[in-house]
Every structure is written in structure tokens, then in C-alpha cells.
């Protein structure tokens, strides 16, 4: 810390943390029920679940609110994951995880997942209010 050094709020980190925190809340509130219902109860046939049949699933996925919901869930979640995994790597003793290239790779990865999500949501089952 020299005399010339002028401290400045790190806006980039602020943004990453904001996305991470929101992603954390969203995944905390929403993930377990998806995994439980779609990953366990549905496949085991304990309860009927929309994704067990093409018709019901397509019907739900066509709803624009569902598309928006999925985009929010996946979008924030992947910023959360990118952030945690980057810090996890640093905790494992890889200081490079704190570098700018690592930031580009991890958060860029999250952005790629978001773009892919948008593409899938737009190209899978046209929007309908039926």
C-alpha cells in the first residue's frame, strides 16, 4: 500500500457478488424441489410429473412465464456456480483463479450457458398461452 494508491470500489467484483448472491438465494429456494420432483419422485413414478410425458411437458414449456422462469433460474444459478467454483479453485491453492483470465473464463462460461439457455428456450416449443 503506497502513498499513491487511491482506493476505489471494485465495481466488477461488486457485480459478480451481486449475481452470486441472487443466484444463491434463487437456487436455495428452488433447486431442491426440482431435483426431488423431477429427479426422484417422477422417475420412480411416485407422483405424476410434467416431464414424464411429451405432451404435458411441451404444454408447460410453451408457456412464456415458464420460459422466463427457467431463464431466471438458470441464468442466476450459473453466475452463482461460476463464482463459487472460481473461489473454490482459489481455496485449493490456485491463485490464478483470482486473475482476470479466470474471471473471463468462469463468468464468460456463465454467460455462454445463459445464451444457450435462451437459444434452447426460443427454439423449443413455440410460445403459446394454451
Amino acid at each position: 500500500m503506497n502513498a499513491e494508491h487511491r482506493p476505489r470500489t471494485a465495481i466488477d467484483h461488486l457485480f459478480f457478488w451481486f449475481m452470486f448472491a441472487n443466484g444463491g438465494v434463487i437456487t436455495a429456494l428452488l433447486m431442491p424441489v426440482h431435483v426431488l420432483v423431477q429427479g426422484i419422485l417422477g422417475p420412480l413414478g411416485v407422483v405424476p410429473v410434467v416431464d414424464q410425458h411429451y405432451d404435458t411437458y411441451a404444454n408447460v414449456i410453451g408457456n412464456p412465464l415458464v420460459k422466463l422462469y427457467l431463464l431466471v433460474l438458470i441464468g442466476f444459478a450459473f453466475f452463482h456456480f461460476a463464482h463459487r467454483l472460481r473461489y473454490l479453485l482459489a481455496d485449493f491453492g490456485v491463485p490464478a483463479a483470482k486473475s482476470l483470465p479466470a474471471q473471463v473464463i468462469f463468468y464468460g462460461g456463465a454467460v455462454v450457458v445463459i445464451l444457450v439457455t435462451i437459444w434452447i428456450l426460443l427454439t423449443t416449443i413455440p410460445i403459446s398461452f394454451g
Partner: peptide, 9 residues
């Protein structure tokens, strides 16, 4: 705030 909210803060 700028001190605590720096990258190393």
C-alpha cells in the same frame, strides 16, 4: 467504503 470495497477487500 472505497478501501473496504476494493478488489482485495
Amino acid at each position: 467504503l472505497p478501501v473496504v470495497a476494493e478488489a482485495e477487500g
